[in-house]
């Protein structure tokens, strides 16, 4: 069976005043049905750009230069804006944004906004007019109750500012599920929340995957979150996929020098805190080939040529000449 989402060799560049920024330079990832894929990378490595490319909402001046985004076998890059709206967004791909405080429209009732999502994208239910509206409200109230939003019956009549940050994230999760999509994409949905709330939300998401039959693409910079939530893992460095595989395999036996270095300096594991020497290259003038080369301990090898994908001993996919 084909995977739900398969991104291969995706390249995205953004035209800026300072030149052309090569923001994504060879992203490969695969999300199988019913699983949770964590996409991990440092700030600025292109996680949000990847999500924007999948959703078809690129910033001004940005362009997908190469690659494919196969969703249920169809290449989303070939979809027009109108097609994305009518056949993909909300109906088949739900989105949970990073900042729950800023992502709801402050001057409309929560219910108005959630019903607007259902307006064009809810699966047909054979109802019309007032009956359909009632059914939709009922579905939303049920979702809110499931998300443990307090007073779900009246929540739709309230405004976003009348909810806390954690509650708003629950509203947004309900909104993502409102039209019963098969894929949900979440962009660091817990970064803005405190640790306890973050933990509750992760537990909730974990449960929802089985319960609603969704697959989850979860973007984060936090290996701790990945270990807690995800089945699979895809590590990104400066716009390039460097390593991908089942979470336990990657975490227990990291193969790519970047993954190794990153895990070594994670506060949960490191004996003493140490960063990776050097800094992330600018997307305006990236090194050729593997972008980790300038900071890598193994640079005697021909790293500046196109990097092949190899297999590590535990079977993870590694983009490094050490494993070619």
């Amino acid at each position: 069976m084909i995977p739900l989402l398969h991104v291969s060799d995706l390249h995205v560049s953004i035209r800026t005043d300072a030149g052309i920024a090569s923001v994504l330079d060879g992203i490969d990832l695969t999300l199988e049905r019913g699983r949770i894929l964590g996409v991990v990378g440092e700030s600025g490595c292109g996680k949000s750009t990847l999500i924007r490319t999948i959703m078809g909402i690129l910033p001004k001046g940005a362009r997908a230069d190469a690659g494919e985004i196969l969703f249920e076998g169809e290449n989303l890059l070939a979809f027009s804006e109108a097609e994305l709206n009518s056949r993909v967004r909300s109906s088949r791909i739900g989105f949970i944004p990073q900042d729950p405080l800023m992502s709801l429209n402050p001057v409309f009732k929560v219910g108005t906004q959630m019903l607007e999502i259902m307006r064009d994208h809810a699966p047909p239910d054979g109802l019309r007019g007032a009956a359909r509206q009632r059914a939709r409200v009922q579905r939303l109230v049920g979702l809110l109750r499931r998300m443990q939003v307090p007073d779900p019956e009246t929540a739709l009549e309230r405004y976003p500012h009348q909810f806390s940050g954690g509650q708003r994230q629950r509203l947004l999760i309900a909104a993502a599920l409102a039209c019963a999509p098969g894929l949900v994409i979440a962009d660091e949905p817990t970064t803005a929340l405190d640790v306890t709330t973050q933990h509750e939300i992760l537990l909730l998401l974990r449960e929802l995957v089985g319960e609603f039959g969704i697959s989850l693409l979860f973007v984060t910079h936090d290996f701790g979150v990945v270990a807690e939530l995800c089945d699979d893992l895809c590590v990104i460095y400066a716009g390039q996929t460097v390593e991908a595989g089942p979470v336990h395999a990657v975490l227990s036996a990291p193969a790519h020098p970047y993954t190794v270095a990153l895990l070594a300096c994670h506060p949960d594991r490191a004996d003493s805190f140490q960063g990776i020497p050097g800094s992330v290259p600018s997307p305006l003038a990236p090194p050729p080939g593997c972008r980790f080369t300038p900071r890598c301990l193994h640079t005697t090898l021909p790293c500046s040529a196109a990097v092949p994908t190899g297999r590590s001993a535990v079977g993870t996919a590694v983009k490094c000449v050490l494993y070619a």
Binding site: M55, I57, L84, N85, V88, R89, S90, S91, G94, F95, P97, Q98, D99, M102, S103, L104, N105, P106, Q113, E116, I117, R119, D120, H121, L172, A175
Partner: peptide, 16 residues
């Protein structure tokens, strides 16, 4: 604003 991106991502019809 972030919410405009969110609304686009959720497929709000452009005119609305």
């Amino acid at each position: 604003n972030d919410f405009v991106f969110y609304e686009r991502a959720m497929g709000f019809r452009r005119s609305r």
